[in-house]
Design a protein around this nucleic acid. Structure first.
Lengths: 170, 170
DNA sequence: ATTGACAGTTCTAAAATAGAACTTAAGGTC
DNA sequence: GACCTTAAGTTCTATTTTAGAACTGTCAAT
């Protein structure tokens, strides 16, 4: 599968993976949320090669996650700031950080703690149902095909059936 | 930066990216949550090359996200199921799907809808503060160094300062 | 006139990925 | 007993991506 094919998939996960699903994009976005904005600052704090950084920034701008804003004329220089679409990635970043906090920390403990300014306490993010407010778990969720589902919804046919169907078509 | 270096970073995001930060791992995990368990089924539904699939499954098992369970003897065959550590990835998957639903769907609409069995309604996931229950946004969160922070906390010194410091050291 | 900051671009070597064919092991079919 | 099928990989070559370092173009300050 080519990279571009991912964006076309009728799957919201695949399309998001097309934006953030590589080694560097999420790390760049982490820096954005920590208020890093400039090329050399990204490069210095991440140790990414300049080539890849230029490439990834271009991609994030193309997807509308970052925007280039001029901060000086002559020579014209830009900084990269999060758009609303980019700010909306916050729950993804936080859920990733939280999973790492629970499952990937070493004996020294968490690298970062998060304070919720609104209530003043150190917190963890919790994912809840928008309708009833209960915490979510996979087993209490049932998936239905939506209006944008692929005709014949292969995500709902079992892969086993699909394999057979493909074999018959061939 | 090498792949293995990521797991060693004192950053919960980087360490999680070491597990799920590539083109395929999240797609494989999506299939796991949709109850795909077997090699050929993953291969058929994703179109991933068999080589990469074998490699990624091995990696996910190594990280303790999937477990290999024998489902028949002679010839011995295994299926891959989510561990608790893997099930805990659910909020990450859901926040990614949700962002895609909001920002990446085409005119046809969402490919999938989610029903919360507990309350019977179609829902979206919402990330809230574990302490006060309010929805989270980046600007209401303040970051502190935790016990596992790098000495001299480079994530909190501005990259600009760091760049200077590095230059001085050289 | 030279040096330094900043934001890239260019180059070569190394690593990862795609795509297809091959392997191993057992069961069933003619 | 030769042959086909299922399942879960492994092996192979060609292509694409990434790493790492050096280079370019603008302008400001010394």
């Amino acid at each position: 599968m080519k990279w571009d094919a991912l964006e076309e998939e009728p799957c919201s996960l695949a399309r998001t993976v097309a934006v953030i699903g590589d080694r560097w994009s999420l790390l760049i976005l982490r820096e954005c949320f920590l208020r890093i904005r400039r090329f050399d600052d990204f490069q210095a704090s991440l140790g990414i090669t300049r080539h890849l950084l230029a490439d990834r920034l271009k991609k994030l701008v193309r997807f509308g996650v970052l925007r280039k804003i001029p901060y000086q004329e002559a020579p014209k220089r830009y900084e990269y700031i999060l758009t609303q679409k980019g700010l909306d990635l916050y729950p993804i970043i936080m859920s990733i950080v939280h999973w790492g906090n629970i499952h990937m920390v070493d004996a020294r403990g968490r690298p970062l703690l998060h304070e919720h300014k609104s209530c003043g306490k150190m917190f963890d993010p919790v994912m809840v149902c928008s309708e009833c407010g209960e915490p979510l778990s996979a087993k209490h969720v049932h998936v239905h095909p939506g209006p944008g589902a692929r005709r014949s919804s292969p995500l709902h046919a079992s892969a086993r059936e699909r394999t057979k169907r493909n074999a018959e078509q061939a």
